[in-house]
Design a protein around this nucleic acid. Structure first.
Lengths: 193, 193, 193, 193
DNA sequence: AATGAATGAGCCTTCATTCAT
DNA sequence: TATGAATGAAGGCTCATTCAT
């Protein structure tokens, strides 16, 4: 019996399964068949909802980024000053939803394979640009355009670097450490002049 | 008597070709055949000098790390104070040999696929541990054991994070920017208390 | 809904193709590709229905043995005395289905390559044990346990030996000669004391 | 320094290594490299002394048969009556040199792969013909040409069949059992009329 | 005579993708 | 909408064979 409106449900199922698969056995072992099985559907169905495996992967990446963006937007909305908004961005990056091994390792795997597909690379560029411009926008009033460039780069890099370590080693175990570390960096750089 | 002593030469050739291949088309497109062709040898020879594709990849990773380690050791040797040695580590990380797109993207790809192989993961762990303990050792006399832990983590993360951006975007274009950024972070954290 | 119930059909197709391939060009030339082509399917499908090439080969061997076992069981069922049952076993071994060049040479090839795989070896052991115990069981009432051991061994060996010649030379051309020969041996050994 | 007269020595070394390799890991694992290593020589040398791998294998088979033939000839020379000569043939087949697991499993493997090469098949045919004609020649004066045909076939088959069991199961453990069994068969068939 | 480096064909296997049902 | 059977193109790896030394 044909069901209507399955599209968003199935897509999310498959994206979740993709994340889980990548986390479990690594990127190159995340085959369509394996993802489908984990989602509890047949192989064929994947190409019903995604044009490609690449498409599924790109959608997965986008989904990961959306999660992050929504959390950042939400946190920034309740912030009132530039520094609060910078904190909001930092906190969002280590938000509860983000701070899971599954999400991290999928993220990292996608990172490491971005060169394989222009689609993936473009998505990552968007993420970088957005993070950078958000930080920049709030840093400029505090330290001027010139220094803001460097500090925005630094904060972004620190976030990614701390992620990387977590994805690889599972440490530190709670989100507060990287948050504090990143905040401290921002504070120091802003106070620096 | 056959050609003697080809082993180290061929191995290095193949490692170089592996780095180039990974950089050029991404990790998953770096097939044995492609690597061999780039090295100007036949497919078969790869398994003459490496037990496995994994072995070749792990050796490549190790080679990358050795390059880094040698540079760090060299720079640390001519440093005399803890802070100088910390700078030495930072500078080594963005050393001339390191600061090439090829090396960076190979590094990143290996990062992103570490989960696929225990070998790769182990090698990365060694790198992390070494970087961390080197930093820690020199930070302790300056800021005490407790804070040193966090700062070592932060410096390491910042290094990796800046790399990541470079590997992905090719920016910033020269090594001085990330060096200065990382030094500034170290300075601020050390001065911070 | 896809084509259902293809599994047993395809499996038998492939087993038949395996037998034919082994017969035609020998064991080591019976590649997966060749077997698949002979079955009129693609290479990929082989691994859809068998885990392995070894699995296909083992299944082929098992299929051969099953044919034999079914014929033996059938013939033994209509036999009433020990000697009749012994004849039944002998006749089954040279049964119409068994007595084909194809089956023989596949059998022989598997024999000669049993050392390569534990699976194959185990299957052959089962065949030997079954043949031996069937003969033994019916010989004991006739000649006592002690002599029965030797005679069972002898009958089994004679059966295999005659097969071997047939598989290799294609002679004798009809099944009656080996049957008569084996029966005569059994008669003589039973009458012998 | 070039050594003279190495040919027969090296050839025998390699043949012995081939037998051992086949026995150890099965026919299909007996690669040229493996055989060479076991013989303690380099890969390349094999093609210096044999045109082919097939040639090496055929020579190995021939060597096995020669061993058998020499033993048979020797034993027949000291026999004086037809029945003694028949015994001589039987005993030679289970001679001390023959009755080794190594030799047996090499023999069997070659058997099982004879279809792969005409050379091998021809050698086996020669063996069969020789065994058959030797038996036949000595059976005719005892039971007439007609019955002799069948009995020669039976004795030959029994010999091969008993071998087969030994090669596969390692039992029976000593040569006397198959000898006695085969002799008993010959006796019974000769006495039979 | 001897080595082992080097080649390239071929094998098994995996996998994204298509398609009949 | 959904299935899973089926395909065929790679991919990693092995191996007999050749060849420079």
């Amino acid at each position: 019996m044909p069901k209507r409106g399955m599209k968003p449900i199935r897509r999310q199922q498959l994206i979740d399964a993709a994340i889980a698969s990548i986390h479990e056995h690594g990127f190159s072992s995340a085959t369509v068949a394996r993802i489908a099985r984990k989602a509890g559907v047949s192989t064929g169905i994947v190409h019903h909802y995604f044009t490609d495996k690449t498409d599924l992967l790109a959608s997965t990446m986008r989904s990961l980024l959306d999660l992050l963006r929504r959390e950042a937007v939400m946190r920034m909305r309740i912030a009132h000053t530039p520094i609060e908004r910078i904190y909001a961005i930092i906190h969002a990056s280590y938000g509860d939803q983000q701070f899971s091994e599954e999400v991290f390792s999928a993220w990292l795997a996608l990172y490491g394979n971005a060169r394989d597909s222009d689609k993936l690379q473009r998505i990552l560029r968007i993420y970088h640009r957005r993070l950078h411009s958000n930080l920049l926008h709030n840093l400029v009033p505090l330290i001027g355009r010139e220094r803001a460039q460097d500090v925005a780069l630094g904060i972004g890099a620190l976030i990614d670097g701390l992620w990387l370590r977590y994805a690889l080693t599972g440490r530190p175990e709670n989100a507060e450490t990287p948050r504090a570390l990143t905040r401290a960096y921002a504070d120091a750089m802003i106070a620096g002049k």
